[in-house]
Computed example of a mutant assay.
Amino acid sequence: MKNMQGRTVFITGGSRGIGRAIALKAAQAGANVVIAAKTAVETTKLSGTIYSVAEEIEAAGGNALPLILDVRHEQQVQLAIQQAASNFGGIDVLINNAGAIALTGIESTSLKQYDLIQNINHRATFICAQAALPFLKQSENPHILSLSPPVNMSPKWLGILSPYALSKYGMTILTLGMAEEFRHYGISCNTLWPETYIATAAVSKNLGEENTQHVSRKPEIMADAAYTIYTTAKGELSGHSLTDEQALSRVGITDFEDYACIEGNTYLQKDFFLD
């Protein structure tokens, strides 16, 4: 595994699921990991907090900084980024992982829900990138990675999920735009999206726990894929929308069987926005 010693990874929404898996992967490589999320107290519905993940990060070999953060608030984001940079001497990787889901069309989506997904998805990507930019400019190998899909204008998806599609495609468009805008700073900007459903609390909420396990992969596939992206050499990979399978295939990993939640299960549900 490549050495992340001395490098700092700032992850939004990393108290469970994919964000937690990404954090632990970075920690195993010796990184400083900032877990910036809202969950400070565990509930019966949601397991894991920024503090429990921080303990796991330390146990895995990394250094942790848990920060309470609501990505909808610019001042909170700026303060969290500054705290992270002060604590660890800089920021090398920003991972826009915080997200909100609404699997409804325009007719069935309330304005409150619409505003929530836009604010947490693409608007927060904008806020976090702007706040982190001064520190990323100073990094020897800076990366921005947003967990969002390739832009797919197929009516199949727009017809049923246009509010959610807008919020996630917005993340992608901003990140691809940053790849070009920040190229002269040497900041690599890419997006990552799962080829299949991933077993997370968000998916289980919509499908049920048992159904989720049958059609999903473990979050670790996204963590491994993310790692292959943010450890690429400066300027080597930027402006790409990759799936986890594509990212892993780039480094010669093409056997994904071990990532299935149920061993030997070959039927996996393709994720949203992928034809």
Score class of each variant (00 low, 15 high):
13 G>S: 02
4 M>E: 07
211 N>W: 00
199 A>G: 00
194 P>H: 03
185 Y>T: 05
144 I>L: 05
31 A>E: 06
237 L>Q: 11
161 L>H: 15
32 N>D: 03
35 I>W: 01
140 E>H: 06
206 N>I: 04
92 D>I: 00
157 W>H: 13
164 Y>P: 08
149 P>F: 10
6 G>R: 00
14 G>N: 01
92 D>G: 13
94 L>E: 12
195 E>T: 15
179 A>F: 04
247 A>Q: 10
209 E>R: 11
214 H>A: 13
91 I>L: 13
19 G>S: 02
102 A>M: 09
81 I>D: 12
82 Q>L: 07
213 Q>D: 07
214 H>Y: 06
222 M>F: 03
77 V>I: 15
204 S>V: 01
29 A>H: 13
186 G>V: 10
98 A>Q: 11
243 T>S: 14
173 I>F: 03
272 F>V: 02
124 A>K: 07
159 G>S: 12
19 G>H: 04
6 G>N: 00
251 V>G: 04
158 L>T: 08
23 A>G: 08
53 V>Y: 05
73 H>S: 07
24 L>H: 01
93 V>D: 12
22 I>S: 04
274 L>W: 07
186 G>Y: 01
125 T>S: 12
33 V>I: 11
75 Q>V: 09
68 I>D: 00
264 G>I: 09
101 I>L: 13
272 F>S: 08
96 N>A: 09
42 E>N: 10
221 I>E: 03
120 I>V: 15
17 G>I: 06
254 T>I: 13
239 G>A: 11
154 S>D: 15
130 Q>E: 08
52 S>E: 09
206 N>C: 02
117 I>Q: 07
23 A>F: 06
125 T>V: 14
202 A>R: 00
23 A>S: 15
169 Y>V: 12
165 A>D: 10
221 I>T: 09
52 S>I: 05
156 K>T: 14
249 S>W: 00
111 L>V: 14
88 F>Y: 11
40 A>Y: 01
102 A>V: 12
243 T>N: 07
129 A>W: 04
37 A>M: 07
35 I>A: 05
79 L>Q: 15
115 D>H: 12
193 W>R: 01
5 Q>S: 10
151 V>S: 01
14 G>F: 02
1 M>T: 06
254 T>M: 08
51 Y>D: 14
185 Y>D: 15
204 S>H: 03
15 S>Y: 06
21 A>H: 05
265 N>F: 00
164 Y>K: 07
54 A>P: 05
157 W>I: 10
257 E>N: 15
196 T>K: 02
234 K>W: 09
195 E>Q: 15
